[in-house]
Design a protein around this nucleic acid. Sequence first.
DNA 1: AAATATTGTTTAATATATGAAACATTGATT
DNA 2: AATCAATGTTTCATATATTAAACAATATTT
Lengths: 279, 279
Amino acid sequence: MGEVDPVAINTLNHEPDIKYIVPGLKRGLDILKIFNRKRVQMNAPEIANELQVPRSTIFRLLQTLEYMDLIEKVPNTSNYKLAAGALGLGFEFLASLEITDFADPILEKLSNKTGLSAHVVIRDKTDVVFIAKKSAKLTFSSSVNIGTRLPAHGTVLGRVLLADLSKAELKKLYPESELVSFSKQTPESVDKLSQVLELDRVNGYAISEAYFEHGIGSIAAAIRDGSSKAVAAINVTYQLGTVEKSLINGLLLESVLAAAAELSRQLNYSDQKALRNVG
Amino acid sequence: MGEVDPVAINTLNHEPDIKYIVPGLKRGLDILKIFNRKRVQMNAPEIANELQVPRSTIFRLLQTLEYMDLIEKVPNTSNYKLAAGALGLGFEFLASLEITDFADPILEKLSNKTGLSAHVVIRDKTDVVFIAKKSAKLTFSSSVNIGTRLPAHGTVLGRVLLADLSKAELKKLYPESELVSFSKQTPESVDKLSQVLELDRVNGYAISEAYFEHGIGSIAAAIRDGSSKAVAAINVTYQLGTVEKSLINGLLLESVLAAAAELSRQLNYSDQKALRNVG
DNA sequence: AAATATTGTTTAATATATGAAACATTGATT
DNA sequence: AATCAATGTTTCATATATTAAACAATATTT
């Protein structure tokens, strides 16, 4: 029974074939991952039930996680919640990204110029992950937190990043030809996605009138590093119907492109290199 | 500017006696924790050597961590670095804190009003941990990142939080009567600390001319929740010698106190409750 | 280019982490 | 208050994770 079947464990991952998973580690990390915005605290039996792991084992894993300052008891309850130690990991990752040194002031400028919420994402496999944001001052500010993941193929932020991949890389990333749909505009297949990306690549940006969330528009452009690789993407979001089309294709798009260009420049991107690669 | 070395700072854990630690989990987490700003990437033998764990074990732990999207190979090297999955944990923790919903706009207002960098921290045992910040626009902006830890007893941010503890709680938190010193102003013993905290408690704020980093001044106040407990602290920092003393004790202090009061109000703190508790 | 050192990966014996079961403690219900 | 149910914790036999050792595949040096 204790035998590990890495394939069956997590169907969303496309890792290279894993030979051996350390059960104690995997289970401990699984515990950490079941805590989220919606389920801030849980007790041991609930966790044991959810993960289908014996109570006595959960007990020891919880002790270990508590010892490592990753979870802590909620006072006066039998519940556990994430502890401050969990912060460390995430922020060391952020700190390891060169772009985080430059993103905040540029996002602020972009948000001020457009009056909209602005975001920077990176791609992690088939997801985009928010790594920096500036909420708009007045309007409904965007609800995404840093660390939030969205499916890359369903967002313009993801598309400008996926557009940087070759068709072969794309097929490898999406072994199933079917894609999950989130709106009428979501490409339903990898082939369809590939066509859309072709256009995004030519444009150098992508604009969506549906985005991942209904009623939200998004204008996105890729950020490139010194090797001309698209390493991140930047966007602004707005409520559909509240912004003139001429503004979208005018000032807003220009502002996003300018911000992307400025961030790219800070990462030592230069047009020359890009042209040389293309030509 | 003197950068903070979070690794060297936090040496002390005061966990309850732990009966049993799951080795696979502890070691896997140890691997994650050796990645930081200074050491962004490492290879397997280096990790094995650092943690004094056999190569074959490290090999499997690394495989597991990679499978869980917490680390990834650095392209064209044998090194590993933190992966985007690490972000999730930290931000779910942040999202679980009620205060993060309100901190950003208040920090922005405080920073704009004072022209200084502003920060919010929580306390985790004997450390303060930065959970939100707004860097000043013009001056040398502060180098602390979210997730950074500083020893509570050596900062005014920490002191306004420690001031909320009873003497018994303080002694329990610092079983050794000696305290690590970071500047001439650092209290060298728990008794000395206790005296300083008494004053901080009466004042309702704390001002430092040495702070943790040399040459940096700091004005801090506690943020309280509906139960009048000091759950966080807010401050502004400035370079010593660049700000008039009258300004520090005037506008700057007022602004910090106002920001702390506003945040406390958002957490349902009311003066009545506080007075009732005291009297 | 050959030799050597370092790193990556697998094997197999054995030390040990696991989990069913028992027991202890706490909380809920009558 | 007494009983029952749920949760917290420990024990111990055994399934399995660990690691020394061997081997394979790369780097590095000569």
